[in-house]
Amino acid sequence: RLGFCQHHDDEVLHLYCDTCSVPICRECTMGRHGGHSFIYLQE
Results as ranks from 00 to 15, higher is better:
29 T>E: 15
2 L>I: 03
22 V>D: 09
7 H>A: 08
30 M>L: 12
34 G>K: 12
36 H>A: 00
41 L>E: 09
13 L>G: 04
39 I>N: 15
4 F>N: 13
36 H>Y: 01
2 L>P: 03
1 R>M: 09
34 G>D: 08
38 F>Y: 12
6 Q>H: 14
40 Y>S: 13
40 Y>T: 14
16 Y>W: 06
24 I>W: 01
15 L>K: 13
23 P>S: 08
35 G>M: 03
19 T>G: 03
9 D>T: 15
7 H>V: 06
38 F>M: 11
39 I>L: 10
1 R>D: 12
40 Y>M: 15
31 G>C: 04
27 E>A: 10
33 H>Y: 02
42 Q>S: 14
15 L>A: 09
41 L>G: 12
6 Q>K: 07
29 T>L: 08
18 D>I: 04
4 F>D: 12
29 T>G: 13
13 L>Q: 09
10 D>T: 10
28 C>N: 04
6 Q>C: 08
18 D>F: 03
42 Q>D: 14
31 G>H: 09
9 D>I: 13
14 H>A: 08
9 D>M: 08
39 I>Q: 15
37 S>T: 12
10 D>Y: 07
42 Q>L: 08
22 V>P: 01
22 V>N: 03
37 S>Q: 14
26 R>M: 04
38 F>D: 05
7 H>M: 07
28 C>Q: 02
41 L>K: 13
40 Y>Q: 15
10 D>M: 05
3 G>S: 10
34 G>L: 05
10 D>P: 05
6 Q>I: 11
33 H>L: 00
17 C>R: 00
43 E>Q: 11
15 L>N: 10
12 V>G: 04
9 D>R: 14
5 C>R: 00
26 R>E: 06
13 L>D: 04
30 M>F: 08
10 D>W: 07
36 H>N: 01
23 P>F: 03
38 F>Q: 07
9 D>N: 04
5 C>H: 03
39 I>K: 15
37 S>Y: 03
9 D>V: 12
12 V>R: 14
16 Y>H: 13
23 P>V: 06
13 L>A: 04
8 H>Y: 03
3 G>L: 06
35 G>E: 11
5 C>Q: 01
40 Y>A: 15
29 T>Y: 09
26 R>Y: 05
24 I>P: 02
17 C>H: 01
5 C>E: 01
23 P>G: 10
18 D>C: 10
24 I>E: 02
38 F>N: 08
10 D>S: 11
32 R>F: 11
10 D>A: 09
30 M>N: 14
19 T>L: 07
6 Q>P: 05
25 C>M: 02
20 C>Y: 01
20 C>K: 01
19 T>H: 08
43 E>C: 03
3 G>E: 15
34 G>F: 04
39 I>F: 08
28 C>F: 00
11 E>W: 09
29 T>H: 13
5 C>M: 00
43 E>D: 15
20 C>A: 01
1 R>C: 12
26 R>L: 07
41 L>Q: 12
17 C>D: 03
15 L>F: 12
26 R>V: 11
4 F>E: 02
34 G>P: 05
33 H>A: 01
24 I>S: 02
39 I>R: 15
12 V>M: 07
29 T>R: 14
41 L>Y: 13
21 S>E: 11
29 T>M: 13
21 S>K: 06
1 R>L: 03
39 I>C: 14
40 Y>K: 15
29 T>I: 10
8 H>L: 07
3 G>Y: 06
38 F>T: 15
32 R>A: 13
25 C>E: 02
39 I>T: 15
11 E>S: 07
15 L>H: 10
7 H>F: 12
25 C>I: 01
16 Y>K: 11
12 V>N: 06
30 M>K: 13
29 T>A: 12
5 C>I: 00
27 E>G: 11
6 Q>G: 06
22 V>T: 15
4 F>Q: 05
14 H>G: 09
4 F>T: 08
16 Y>M: 10
31 G>N: 13
19 T>Q: 15
31 G>I: 05
5 C>P: 01
15 L>E: 04
23 P>E: 12
6 Q>V: 04
32 R>N: 11
32 R>Q: 15
13 L>Y: 12
21 S>T: 10
13 L>S: 14
32 R>E: 15
39 I>S: 13
30 M>H: 14
1 R>S: 11
13 L>H: 03
9 D>W: 07
34 G>S: 13
36 H>T: 00
16 Y>E: 08
15 L>D: 06
22 V>Q: 15
35 G>Y: 03
29 T>V: 07
41 L>P: 15
30 M>C: 11
15 L>R: 11
38 F>L: 09
24 I>Y: 02
9 D>Y: 10
28 C>H: 02
24 I>C: 08
42 Q>I: 07
28 C>M: 02
39 I>G: 14
8 H>A: 06
39 I>V: 14
8 H>P: 05
26 R>W: 05
32 R>V: 13
17 C>W: 00
26 R>G: 10
37 S>W: 03
18 D>E: 15
37 S>P: 11
27 E>D: 03
12 V>K: 12
15 L>Q: 12
38 F>V: 12
31 G>R: 09
20 C>V: 00
26 R>P: 08
43 E>R: 08
25 C>L: 02
17 C>M: 01
34 G>A: 11
19 T>F: 12
14 H>K: 14
43 E>K: 06
6 Q>F: 08
11 E>F: 07
16 Y>F: 13
26 R>I: 05
25 C>Q: 01
17 C>G: 02
32 R>C: 11
31 G>P: 06
8 H>T: 08
38 F>G: 05
11 E>L: 03
32 R>I: 10
28 C>W: 02
4 F>G: 04
22 V>E: 15
22 V>K: 09
40 Y>E: 15
5 C>S: 00
13 L>M: 11
9 D>L: 10
2 L>C: 04
13 L>F: 05
26 R>K: 13
18 D>Q: 09
30 M>E: 15
22 V>F: 10
33 H>S: 01
15 L>C: 06
6 Q>D: 09
31 G>E: 10
25 C>A: 02
8 H>S: 07
31 G>V: 07
20 C>M: 00
33 H>V: 01
20 C>W: 00
35 G>S: 13
5 C>V: 01
25 C>S: 01
28 C>A: 02
7 H>N: 06
24 I>D: 02
32 R>M: 08
11 E>H: 12
36 H>W: 00
15 L>I: 13
36 H>C: 11
5 C>F: 00
2 L>T: 05
28 C>P: 01
27 E>S: 12
16 Y>V: 08
11 E>Y: 07
9 D>K: 15
37 S>A: 13
40 Y>W: 09
24 I>T: 04
24 I>F: 05
35 G>L: 05
41 L>V: 09
32 R>S: 12
15 L>P: 04
39 I>M: 09
29 T>P: 05
35 G>R: 11
13 L>E: 08
4 F>C: 07
26 R>D: 09
23 P>W: 11
2 L>H: 05
15 L>V: 07
17 C>A: 01
31 G>F: 06
15 L>T: 11
12 V>F: 11
31 G>K: 13
36 H>P: 01
34 G>H: 08
10 D>Q: 14
11 E>M: 15
30 M>P: 04
19 T>V: 07
28 C>G: 03
43 E>V: 11
20 C>H: 00
12 V>A: 08
8 H>N: 04
24 I>V: 08
12 V>Y: 06
17 C>P: 02
37 S>E: 05
23 P>I: 02
19 T>S: 07
8 H>W: 04
6 Q>R: 07
42 Q>G: 13
43 E>G: 15
5 C>D: 01
19 T>K: 09
14 H>W: 03
29 T>Q: 14
21 S>P: 01
32 R>G: 12
3 G>M: 04
4 F>V: 05
43 E>H: 03
23 P>M: 05
2 L>Y: 11
9 D>C: 10
26 R>F: 13
5 C>N: 02
2 L>D: 11
25 C>D: 02
3 G>T: 03
25 C>T: 01
27 E>Y: 06
14 H>E: 13
42 Q>E: 10
3 G>F: 09
5 C>G: 01
28 C>I: 03
21 S>G: 07
36 H>Q: 01
42 Q>K: 15
9 D>P: 13
14 H>N: 15
3 G>W: 03
20 C>P: 02
33 H>C: 13
27 E>W: 06
9 D>G: 12
11 E>G: 11
28 C>E: 03
18 D>S: 10
9 D>Q: 15
33 H>T: 02
24 I>K: 02
27 E>F: 04
38 F>C: 05
9 D>A: 14
22 V>W: 00
3 G>H: 05
18 D>M: 05
42 Q>W: 08
25 C>W: 00
36 H>G: 02
18 D>H: 13
25 C>K: 02
36 H>E: 02
33 H>K: 00
2 L>V: 05
37 S>L: 06
30 M>G: 15
30 M>D: 14
27 E>R: 13
27 E>N: 10
8 H>I: 04
43 E>P: 05
26 R>H: 10
41 L>I: 05
23 P>K: 15
11 E>N: 05
21 S>I: 02
10 D>N: 13
21 S>W: 04
14 H>L: 03
